[in-house]
Design a protein around this nucleic acid. Structure first.
Lengths: 186, 186
DNA sequence: CGCCGCATGTAAGAGGTTACATGATTCG
DNA sequence: CGAATCATGTAACCTCTTACATGCGGCG
């Protein structure tokens, strides 16, 4: 059987369904919650991808009537073929990430920027880094406080420490950049 | 006059042309050279975008005969309207970047990974970080050694220090992650 | 009354990649 | 001889976003 090409979105979905059956809406919530610091998905992409995975028999559906007047839910479960596809994905190395940092592009072209604009951007960036750092520190604390952590807590901790170390460094860089840019405006 | 929506690729092009006239090929070389640690572009996107910018009168073309049997070049220059569009871009805040880190997705779903795969990925990642760091250190040294640096060297230094601090942190994280994952495989 | 949360979806289009085609020269 | 460099471009395709549509119930 030829291995059907599966894109990163489909794998994120497949990975979450491997844990437990979920609806498209649930998947979005999960991504916004636990995966937010390194991943994102939109509804407009999740729903079509769920249909595609179903056509490829990597997942199956079950309609569940909504409780208390809530709309009907479609709960998806991963199939045996889906688990095989997930394993196959891990086996080939990840696609090299191609960077695209708009803030750095602006800085690089800073000569053409009207006064004040770069400082505004760098500060907004720094604020985002600080905010993200704070949120992750809370997650870190919650993970550490768990008396009997699940087997995969190690993996979650690794993604969290990636985030905290990254954001800490970038928050510091932002402050340095802010100082440098202020010196220029004199 | 309604501001024509311009995408990040068009702005990278516009920004480079603001410095001096260039061909599509030159632009690609420049991106691969000085912008590589925070930006990328493909030929298949640069050429159509040059045509679009030209239709919008933000840049103009001049055909230059190739020297020594080389093919003809199309050298593009930024127009006055192009410079205005560039300024307008700086004036509105950058689009919030949405993260997508495939390595972290794999780690998060690490429970489903066949043994060895995650360690392989983390090591490859660390090697990339070390490589990028080394290359940027050279750039840093060259910038520092310049006896009379251009006015915008400050901006370049900021993008470079972003890179060095980032890669240093991520290289360290990779080694930590490697140790953690090795402990798991016992 | 209007908005929010729940829940699913579609259509249009933007943005971008990949693979290919062309053709001359230079280099090993 | 084959490969790489220079140089431009197109066509097919994939991925993903945005905006919209629908509909019920609870809350302020």
């Amino acid at each position: 059987v030829a291995t059907t090409r599966v894109n990163p979105t489909e794998f994120a979905i497949l990975g979450l369904l491997a844990e437990s059956p979920r609806s498209g809406y649930d998947i979005k919530l999960e991504v916004e919650g636990r995966l937010k610091h390194f991943w994102h998905e939109s509804f407009g992409h999740i729903y079509p991808m769920l249909q595609r995975l179903q056509r490829r028999r990597l997942i199956s559906v079950r309609a569940v009537a909504g409780t208390r007047g809530r709309p009907e839910r479609k709960v998806y479960s991963i199939t045996a073929a889906g688990r095989r596809a997930l394993t196959a994905w891990f086996s080939e190395p990840p696609a090299a990430s191609r960077p695209r940092n708009e803030l750095l592009l602006r800085l690089f072209l800073g000569k053409y920027a009207p006064p004040g604009m770069l400082i505004r951007d760098v500060r907004a960036y720094g604020a985002m880094m600080h905010g993200a750092l704070e949120r992750l520190r809370e997650v870190e604390a919650r993970l550490a406080a768990d008396p009997n952590p699940p087997r995969d807590a190690v993996f979650w901790r690794l993604t969290v420490s990636f985030g905290t170390q990254l954001y800490e460094t970038l928050a510091e860089w932002s402050e340095m950049a802010d100082r440098e840019l202020r010196r220029l405006e004199d």
